[in-house]
Write a protein that binds this DNA or RNA. Structure first.
Lengths: 204, 204
DNA sequence: ACCTGAACACCGTTCAAGT
DNA sequence: ACCTGAACACCGTTCAAGT
């Protein structure tokens, strides 16, 4: 059975399997992905010769494939509205598999799909009047807020809050936060903070 | 030479060696740390029985040992001023070894030193009038901004900006940004955005 | 073209053995 | 108490061999 009758692998299948593993265990391994697909580890290299890094690239592409930029690209809308839409869409896509963020951080953005998303952000920043020299720093801030919020929404109460520490203020907030809505509220708060910062940059 | 005349290892030495490796190569390994200290990998386990995770905990502690909270704890000062000081101190400490952020993200905060830093943040948020249910989300936002900025300040121009992509807005900002000052300006911008958000939360 | 199976270098961890 | 050295399970990757 050296060669099967019909294809049993593809870059997409590999990336999806890896995403499932990350969603379940917080990380993935080559043998793990292979096992999930009923195949030997070395088989993966025929479809993604770049090895582990190539898989990570594909995971990002897969994750952001479903993103709906639509209205965020509409030049008729006010730029700050488009910024809100962009942040929400990006966050929602990330929040589907929040555990993937630490995995993605290790690899640079290279795929066309994700680059197009950032291109849209830079168009928005331009239209909002942000000076060119500030746009990279600005996008980094936005990135941090969006990815940070996505991770936060999925993580349970931080460990340092869960048992009796001698730090009164940390303890006092330990009780709540099983709530998904609250994380979302935190995100919307951050969105408005970012919008205010961008507005300030655009009018200065 | 099964046992040396005088101690050649300690948790602090191990953590410092690991930090140096991360600063240089972006990551560390147990054999790497051992080699840097002129010792065998298994020796490390006598000082940090928790293995790799314990080393990461110690690295965080070491990194934040030098942090100067001072004025950020001064109850006389306006809370929002203290928030600014807190963010700058936290960011400066992180920026000493920015490459460590991806390593730290993988391990929960458990050491007393770092917990005390977060305790201070929660005191500031309380004094600023942020309702208890919002404080965790709020601290996550602040975390994302601070750590994101620290990483950003040390990374070169993003890869996706460095060569000719067919994405005009991304290309148009490719030129600048060898500058450390600009990243700092981006951070100060983020600080003011966060301060505005916290102020809004505190007065609502 | 596509999967197997053996092989290699490497990492994290354990543990008996030395002093 | 503290370091050695051998050992084990595991991971990422390569490559000749099969169909």
């Amino acid at each position: 059975m050296a060669r099967p009758k019909q294809r049993i692998l593809s870059p997409t299948l590999i990336a999806e399997a890896a995403l499932r593993l990350v969603a379940k265990h917080g990380d993935f391994t080559i043998p793990g992905v292979a096992a999930a697909l009923g195949v030997h580890p070395s088989s993966l290299y025929h479809h993604l010769p770049g090895g582990r890094l190539a898989i990570v690239h594909r995971m990002r592409e897969e994750l952001y494939a479903g993103i709906e930029l639509g209205a965020a690209l509409d030049a008729e809308r006010p730029p700050l509205d488009r910024l809100r839409l962009w942040m929400r869409a990006y966050r929602a896509a990330t929040a589907r598999v929040p555990a993937v963020v630490p995995v993605l951080v290790g690899a640079p953005v290279e795929d066309a799909r994700t680059l197009a998303i950032y291109e849209a952000l830079f168009v928005i920043l331009r239209d909002a009047g942000v000076p060119p020299e500030q746009r990279v720093a600005c996008s980094a801030m936005i990135d941090a807020v969006v990815l940070g919020s996505a991770v936060d929404a999925a993580s349970p109460v931080p460990l340092w809050l869960s048992d009796g520490h001698p730090l009164p203020e940390l303890r006092s907030v330990a009780a709540p936060d099983d709530d998904r809505d609250r994380a979302l509220a935190g995100f919307e708060l951050a969105v408005e903070a970012v919008v205010a910062a961008v507005r300030a940059l655009g009018t200065a």
